[in-house]
Design a protein around this nucleic acid. Structure first.
Lengths: 411, 411
DNA sequence: AGTATTTTTTTAATACTCGAAAAAATCATT
DNA sequence: AATGATTTTTTCGAGTATTAAAAAAATACT
């Protein structure tokens, strides 16, 4: 039920993971510092560190440029051996596809970017499209022949339960295919799909360490409405949570959403929904394909000037999100809300109706609206989240799991 | 971040837990059977089993009444030493309070039952009331002087984040007090509060083992609407999930709920809500205090005879629950729905509107309504859930954690 | 050059699992 | 009744972990 048999190999793996973990969180550290941080003894640190160095996973940082030269034997900081392995991040959204190759130290090595249009994946099926670009990365970076271990892809939409592809995606012709298997068959890599909303929440945890012990909900407001949820310490709890907040039904048979359903939160709170209400377009009118940022900005300006229709549109949006949070808070206790994306610019206009919606239930009333933080640029937490997912995956599944006989990974 | 330092003591604790776990799941087993089941070697089983027997946690079952006498050395089944420890279960709801004392083998030893009324906890504060009854159990069962380890209490309502008491409870004067600390101060026991909805879901997992790898949502429909959610393998994931489904807002500013808010699911789908709609009582009318089972049954009968108002009431109820599930399914993927309680009798009357509500969104439409099971008697899974919580708590925190020097627990 | 100080490594002790061999406990057969 | 076959359980030795404590290493200070 819980875990399987425990033996001494597991001890070592677990302690190796522990060490890579603190190194990942708090820069280069000396053996003693790691010992203190992890609770392991110095003796163990000597052993495991030696193992890591032999295997080429970590290296001694001999930049001796210490701060105030202390007495005693100088400490030697350990740090990631950048050549130990490589990761590839793929950020995929409705408009672009960006591949970033990074080394084990998290340093950018190569980058490929291309535009995505509704016809992109009709012309070249997604697995093929991605394989071609990955091949380009391999060709341009010969050093990673067998050292590219893991590919992390950020997507939006609904995953198959086994994570092999998408059941639904806002990107045309992207859903319905097995993405993971063809890539894993062609290249010697582990491929994983991650939901953008979830990455946002994870990324925020790395960017704001004080969130560690809280349940965090991130809400993206922009051309869509997305959410991510992460739970304290549930590092391993990778089940598909915070899935499609934007497509939670706010009002049965309500406004028409891009997804085809009626009454989704998104249909009221995404840019196109706000635009529609602000210009009193009937709520059943099919949504605009894309809203130019200027148009959205203009509605904000109008609302600030007191325009009734614009104010009303933001009220509807706030209310949709507020009730959505309300419904969420009927299920979890949420410790912190982070709102990201272009919608943050209009947060003040939505606040009162958002709060009203969020607190109008038993749970919402008792617990109140949790503290809210605004983060205008959503791409940073997504990138950070994706990066850390890939690196910790490498830490855990490749380098922590190596046994003593393992060959050195570096030349 | 993950776990702490791993050492050899942890190995032993973990393997002990593993053994107690399979024993808990699959009756008495011989050492070899346990070895096969857990993956541990026979040698290890000899060692650990000897330890357990010395400590009085397990005993050799010498009932030799084997089935077909096989050749070879006969196997000796290990089973729980019933005298190793005791647990106390307290089921508390709006009408009664029942204490059940069980031994480590799960056998009922003593039981105390009393009625609860709205004035009960006004006259005797809850911690005092419970302490008195626990004292009675101690007095009547002298053998458990220092062998009662854990008390598990089933409650309804909203817990404090630290689990020490209730923020809100449907039982008058029960909320707002620290329940756990006074009891732990007075008796040498571990006290924990568990939410009834959650126990239902957990209990169903024990009753139907094929649920193991699914996300299960249990929905109680009766005088309230409650929910429990459990996730596959998330044995340890004890955070407070599935909290107040019944008080999720279905329709903003809708029907008046017992909790004082407007538009809760409960206000449409609990017995009082159905009654109210069936008799066309205005939805803002304060709900009846308790609905006699006969009255509820009568509405079912009327609906089956084609009474429009009764049918409409069940439609509203089904719709409320359907949209609630819909909203839930926008956040998790749910693999199985189990409906419990008196409301199951009217499930067929609610089904079409329930399904319509559940599948009207993007997620609901794509995934469809998961398989639904009906269980009329909700008290069995609650009791089972509570029992297994207490026993596994004992297994894990007391008996798995004992070290080699530990004294024997049995005389 | 010698001493103080801090980090890192070595050493010895202990705990745990495992595979293989040995022992134990029964049935089957002669 | 004795011997053999068979299955379960125990014993034993080897291998791998961790840790505390002692030793060694590497530097600053005097």
């Amino acid at each position: 039920m819980a875990r399987g048999v425990a033996d001494t190999e597991m001890i070592r793996r677990q302690n190796r993971e522990l060490i890579l973990g603190v190194l990942r969180r708090s820069g280069p550290l000396s053996r003693s510092e790691i010992a203190i941080e992890t609770g392991l003894s110095n003796a163990t640190l000597t052993t495991i560190a030696a193992e890591f160095v032999t295997q080429g996973v970590l290296i001694d940082l001999d930049a001796p440029a210490e701060e105030a030269k202390a007495r005693g034997r100088p400490s030697v900081k350990l740090t990631h051996n950048r050549k130990a392995g490589y990761i590839l991040l793929i950020e995929l959204d409705v408009t672009r596809c960006r591949l970033s190759l990074l080394d084990y130290g998290g340093v950018l090595v190569d980058r490929v970017e291309s535009a995505v249009t509704p016809s992109t994946f009709a012309e070249s099926p997604a697995p093929h499209y991605l394989a071609e670009r990955i091949q380009l990365i391999y060709t341009r970076n010969t050093e990673l022949a067998d050292r590219l271990y893991t590919v992390a892809i950020s997507v939006q939409g609904i995953l198959y339960p086994d994570g092999s592809g998408m059941k639904w995606s806002p990107i045309a012709h992207f859903a319905g295919l097995d993405i993971v298997s063809p890539l894993q068959a062609r290249f010697p890599i582990t491929v994983k799909l991650y939901k953008r909303g979830r990455l946002m929440a994870d990324g925020m945890r790395w960017l704001e360490p004080e969130l560690t012990h809280k349940t965090v909900a991130t809400v993206f407001i922009g051309s869509t409405v997305g959410m991510g949820l992460t739970f304290p310490d549930a590092d391993r709890f990778d089940s598909d949570i915070g899935t499609e907040f934007g497509h939670m039904i706010h009002i049965p048979d309500g406004a028409l959403c891009r997804c085809g359903a009626h009454g989704c939160i998104e249909a009221y709170a995404a840019d196109y929904g706000i635009l529609r209400s602000a210009y009193s377009v009937p709520a059943r009118t099919p949504p605009a394909h894309a809203v130019p940022p200027g148009d959205f900005q203009q509605i904000i300006t109008q609302a600030r000037l007191g325009d009734r229709n614009a104010l009303h549109a933001f009220n509807l949006a706030g209310s949709a999100i507020g009730y959505g949070l309300n419904r969420l808070m009927s299920i979890f206790e949420i410790g912190r809300i982070i709102i990201l994306g272009p919608g943050t610019a209009a947060y003040d206009l939505m606040l009162s109706s958002l709060r009203e919606g969020a607190t109008s239930s038993l749970m919402g009333g008792i617990n109140g609206l949790p503290p809210v933080t605004l983060v205008a640029d959503a791409s940073e937490p997504v990138y950070r989240g994706l990066l850390m997912k890939a690196l910790t995956e490498l830490d855990r599944n490749v380098f922590a799991a190596m046994n003593q006989q393992a060959q050195s990974v570096a030349e």
